[in-house]
Amino acid sequence: MQGLLAGRSILVVEDDYLIAMDVDNALRQAGAQVLGPVPGVAEAMALVRTVNLDAAVLDVALGRETAHELAKELRARRTPFVLATGNVNVAGQPDFEGAPVLEKPVRSQDLVRAIAAIVS
């Protein structure tokens, strides 16, 4: 896994601290530069609009918000993203069309490979 994401800037949006730290750790070990992790849409949107991103990891349910608006913004910027979610029915939602869906609990190596695939 090491170096698979070397030099890539990856945004992590995840509302649960423990999972966010886990993802953060996994991506750093794969050589990525992690932006965030951030727990909500507003913080994520601020990063998306100000920083150059190679890809993003999105949790769909973010407290009382969802990642739909964020997904639209990323699409508009042609920034690829993967979904790491506990929601079972995100597949087929237009905002997320084409994005790989990883169901929680997500194994670190699966996440790293999925991101590597969309940034290459």
Partner: peptide, 21 residues
Amino acid sequence: INELQHRGRNLLGVIAAIAKR
């Protein structure tokens, strides 16, 4: 049901994170 499903899966993620830590 969706909420429980979501919470359950999230919980597995939390358990995995705690196990690693």
